[in-house]
Design a protein around this nucleic acid. Structure first.
Length: 419
RNA sequence: GUGGGCGUAGCUCAGUUGGUUAGAGCGCCAGGUUGUGGUCCUGGAGGCCGGGGGUUCGAGACCCCUCGUCCACCCCA
């Protein structure tokens, strides 16, 4: 087979699923714009340096970047996520704070593809720059939670943790390193390698042999500074006040190095595969500074479209939107009348489709059925000669004749009947 | 990146210890119903059995390589 097909980790999203994707983004826009977030469209590729700030120890940067040199000799990369781009944009444009933005679109990571993990994958997300208030942390989390509710998801669990300030995080990492090194004989080989790069990440290991050691590991909560501890307590209190349930997870250590203080993750318990994390985020105070801007607090989250939709499938919610074709024209007189009817109805906002290629009435009726149309408009030689059309609601056995001139009025009545 | 499973029609899959013209269901097209879909009946189109090499008189079945996909690890959304 020499025909082309999509590259590994990419795919075509066809109807009706593509319509579902678009609706997903529209619902998201509705939830966050109502909270004052503005839509932002960052470029899909940037100077490689923008993304290198995500952390020297993250796989996203070291192993998975789609980077290349363009024809002008610039070192650029397809964005692996959008937080860094938002921060770069903040430094570049210096908007007034608080700067609340949302985005949607594809990101690129060179990973081995699996279900729920693609090389081109879509996310929606929000970011807020310039606010340290713990109430904002809670607002950000609440919006994600509200969005899941709007989709109809109920089996979503929120895990939350605090990684402390930069100093706390470093101190804890040192303590962890010492702890794990003293138990290194009980760690898996993979975790020993992880330990040398980022001790925090060992806490994330899912390998069975590591679990006992991890269970007894020091806990970040014991190493939080007073301010970080207070901040975390305030976030939890604000979540309580909004009736958002959560689980404090001491082992929640997210993979991007820039996270500070609050980190959180949403897991779908309806999914059975390994990729149950359908969304996550946290604070990244310091990232703007890394990118050459002023010291600025930042927080946000990103939700994966694919995985969230998989969760929707598993819960049987958020189906693809219905057909927008209200009427289907069946014309056995050559098709010219169908053309006129389609134009007439479409121009007043009524969805209409028709058949082509002079197919038999039976075939056209079949097409009408498949189109999802509520009514079919039938025009045969008798109708054409009499200056009439036959209207047939698809879900009933009844059909009736109207004068051609009354077609629009009749269809409008049918629209009302179906509302 | 590491390890493993699987690639047969548009889709979901069957193909007995290697044996001649490769099957089903669904979908699609047509007819039964020369003016009627969603049910039913009949027929039809559609496959270099992922690709390449090898073993054999003979390979969809066996071996090697390769590509793709899925699962676990890893990573993360």
């Amino acid at each position: 087979m020499s025909a082309f097909s999509t590259s590994p980790g990419t795919r075509d999203i066809l109807a009706p699923d593509a319509a579902r994707w678009r609706l997903f983004q529209e619902v998201f826009a509705d939830v966050v714009e109502q909270a004052g977030y503005g839509y932002m469209i960052p470029p899909m590729f940037e100077d490689l340096g923008v993304f290198l700030r995500l952390g020297e120890a993250t796989d996203v940067v070291t192993k998975e970047m789609y980077d290349f040199e363009d024809k002008g000799g610039r070192r650029v990369a397809l964005r692996p996520e959008q937080t860094a781009s938002v921060c770069r944009a903040f430094v570049q444009h210096r908007p007034t704070t608080p700067w609340k933005v949302w985005y949607a679109g594809p990101n690129f990571r060179y990973e081995k593809p699996q279900q729920g993990r693609y090389r081109q994958f879509d996310q929606v997300g929000i970011e807020v720059l310039g606010v340290e208030d713990p109430h904002l942390d809670a607002e950000v989390i609440a919006l994600a939670s509200q969005f899941y509710t709007r989709l109809g998801l109920t089996n979503v669990q929120l895990s939350i943790n605090s990684l402390g300030d930069a100093g706390d995080r470093q101190r804890f990492a040192d303590v962890l390193r010492i702890y794990f090194e003293s138990h290194i004989d009980r760690l898996s080989e993979e975790s020993r390698i992880t330990l040398t790069k980022n001790p925090l990440r060992v806490l994330d290991s899912k390998r069975r042999e590591d679990q006992a050691v991890i269970a007894d590991a020091p806990r970040i909560r014991d190493y939080l500074s007073a301010q970080a501890g207070e901040h975390f307590a305030a976030v939890l209190a604000a979540l309580d006040a909004q009736n958002i349930t959560y689980t404090i997870d001491d082992r929640l250590v997210r993979g991007l190095d820039y996270y500070r203080r609050t980190t959180f993750e949403f897991v779908s318990t309806a999914l059975t595969a390994a990729h149950t994390a359908i969304g996550g985020g946290g604070r990244y105070d310091g990232l703007v500074e890394e990118l050459g801007g002023p010291a600025t607090a930042g927080i946000g989250f990103a939700l994966g479209l694919d995985r969230t939709l998989l969760a929707c499938d598993a819960e049987n919610v958020f189906p693809a939107p219905a057909s927008r074709v209200f009427a289907f024209v069946v014309d056995t007189t050559g098709g010219l009348e169908a053309a006129k009817v389609c134009h007439e109805l479409r121009s007043v906002g009524i969805g209409v489709d028709r058949a082509f290629d002079g197919r038999s009435m039976k075939a056209q009726m079949k097409a009408a059925d498949r189109s999802g149309a509520m009514v079919s408009i039938i025009i045969g030689t008798n109708e054409l000669e009499a200056g009439q059309v036959l209207i047939r609601p698809m879900n009933s056995g009844e059909q009736y004749m109207v004068e051609r001139a009354q077609l629009l009025t009749a269809i409008r009545q049918e629209v009302i009947n179906f509302q």
